[in-house]
Design a protein around this nucleic acid. Structure first.
Length: 180
DNA sequence: CAGGCTCTTCACA
DNA sequence: TGTGAAGAGCCTG
């Protein structure tokens, strides 16, 4: 895995035993990477820092890490960010997923079709490598039978985030009215 | 449920 | 550069 050479600042936020972290470019203040919440601080920091050759930890962007926490808890939250890495295909996927409205859901198939391809599985791969989990709402992408599908942080976490956004889920399936 | 289809990416030669 | 395997999926029988 080749690393981004940009210098970043990592800030964390702790809420009820869960740590959140963001990696922000020192130069421009863009969010380049976010973490899946974890129970140990060093784990969220390494999830971020692993993608970069140079970093430092400070509380400068603690407010952003806090926003990440809010978003995780189903609060509508806006972020300013850019996507620092990835193939054109991956960027196209992330761009479509960014546009899924809060509290709604789309399928891997939908995303593939709007990109004019049948690479359903490749859409999943692209989301697996989403550098901005939660901020880019890959948890709003599910399987075409409206069962949940996979998630980097575990399907249980995917289910919980969706529930907190007000999506109705019964027997691990999205109920149709939530599917825009 | 099994098996084939579809495509992108990665590993390894 | 070239080939093969692996995937957060989909469809048909």
């Amino acid at each position: 895995m080749n690393k981004n050479s940009e210098k970043i600042i990592i800030s964390t936020y702790n809420h009820k035993g869960l740590y959140f972290a963001v990696g922000v470019s020192e130069q421009e203040g863009n969010i380049l990477k976010s973490s899946i919440p974890k129970t140990r601080k060093k784990d969220v920091i390494s999830e971020i820092s692993d993608s970069f050759s140079s970093f430092k930890v400070s509380d400068k962007y603690e407010n952003l890490a806090k926003s990440l926490c809010s978003a995780y808890h189903g609060k509508k939250t806006q972020f300013c960010f850019n996507i620092y890495d990835g193939t054109p295909f991956e960027k196209n996927v992330l761009e479509k997923v960014m546009k899924i409205p809060y509290g709604e859901v789309r399928t891997y198939k939908d995303i593939a079709e709007t990109l004019g391809t049948r690479a359903y599985r490749a859409v999943g791969m692209a989301l697996k490598r989403n550098p901005l989990p939660i901020i880019i709402p890959c948890h709003r992408v599910v399987k075409s039978d409206l069962s949940l599908g996979g998630y980097k942080g575990g399907t249980n976490m995917k289910k919980n985030i969706l529930k907190m956004e007000g999506v109705h889920i019964v027997n691990d399936k999205i109920i149709k009215s939530m599917y825009g």
